[in-house]
Design a protein around this nucleic acid. Structure first.
Length: 269
DNA sequence: GCTAAATGTTGAT
DNA sequence: TCAACCTTTAGCT
């Protein structure tokens, strides 16, 4: 499900499955027909991910891509992968990519468009630091947070501040650090922020590896061995009214900036 | 079989 | 602050 880890994983997988050879692009649904025609037959040379934004670079090998496919999955978007021969498209397939051995169907994205390198640069410029990127600058994030009266719960969801953190990672990382989501950013001290950032890097990397979000430590799960169930994978996300895994207090929920916030009022101060 | 909700963002008010 | 959008799934009946 699409927070930053999903996008990074897609970038990696698509590079491996489709990179280096011409790709057939089409829009079975028709809504991306013109864009698909621009990409059809081009070679995928690079992929990139920044926060929840996915990029596929097309052009000549060894050169900077001349065109970039930009995809944002939004809340519902999904890539479905399979092996050739590709079946007849089912449902609303915005984009179908077919390579030598695999195909990918894209459904329900909020953005699917072709960008110039300048367009792409502009998009990067408005995104904040991505814990999964080596060029991320946590100092810049700290500057924003330490001067802000906005709550840390809202700051963590602001893609211009931190790119790639969504509603699940927000709730979970704040729980793991005992931070009340309602605290203004400037109430945090540097050590707290550094710990949160370091944890986000680790959590997102683990998410890329596992292909899912797991934030609980084994000793805090109901079942301590084996692959954690979906229910066991989080401390507070979507656990409203259920006992906190650490102290037993019912987990609280309330809307924060149009999204459902979850937190433990006892553990998070 | 229907309804509501969901890991997100944008644009209008 | 609110509605709109794109699609799937969980939880009802």
């Amino acid at each position: 499900m699409p927070e930053g880890h999903t996008i990074r994983r897609l970038a990696r997988d698509h590079k491996r499955l489709f990179g280096g050879a011409p790709v057939a692009a089409s829009s079975p649904q028709g809504r991306f027909a013109a864009g698909a025609a621009l990409l059809d037959g081009q070679t995928l040379t690079r992929t990139d991910a920044h926060g929840k934004h996915l990029f596929h670079g097309f052009g000549d090998a060894g050169r900077t891509p001349a065109r970039w496919l930009h995809v944002h999955l939004g809340l519902y978007g999904k890539f479905q992968l399979g092996e050739v021969p590709e079946p007849a498209p089912v449902g609303q397939v915005r984009l179908r990519l077919v390579g030598a051995g695999h195909y990918a169907d894209l459904r329900g994205p909020i953005a699917c468009e072709v960008l110039t390198p300048a367009d792409k640069a502009a998009l990067h410029a408005r995104l904040g630091a991505d814990p999964l990127r080596s060029d991320a600058d946590p100092d810049a994030v700290w500057q924003r947070i330490s001067r802000s009266r906005t709550t840390i719960g809202q700051l963590l969801m602001d893609q211009a501040v931190i790119a790639g953190v969504g509603n699940v990672y927000r709730a979970e990382v704040l729980f793991r650090h005992g931070l009340d989501p309602h605290r203004p950013g400037r109430d945090l001290d540097r050590a707290q922020w550094d710990a949160v950032w370091t944890d986000l890097v680790g959590l997102l990397r683990a998410g890329v590896r596992a292909g899912r979000i797991v934030t609980t430590r084994p000793e805090d799960r109901d079942r301590r061995s084996g692959t954690p169930s979906r229910e066991d994978a989080t401390y507070v996300y979507r656990r409203a009214g259920m006992p906190c895994r650490v102290c037993g207090t019912p987990v609280r929920t309330e809307p924060m900036a149009t999204r459902n916030l979850y937190w433990c009022p006892t553990c998070q101060l």
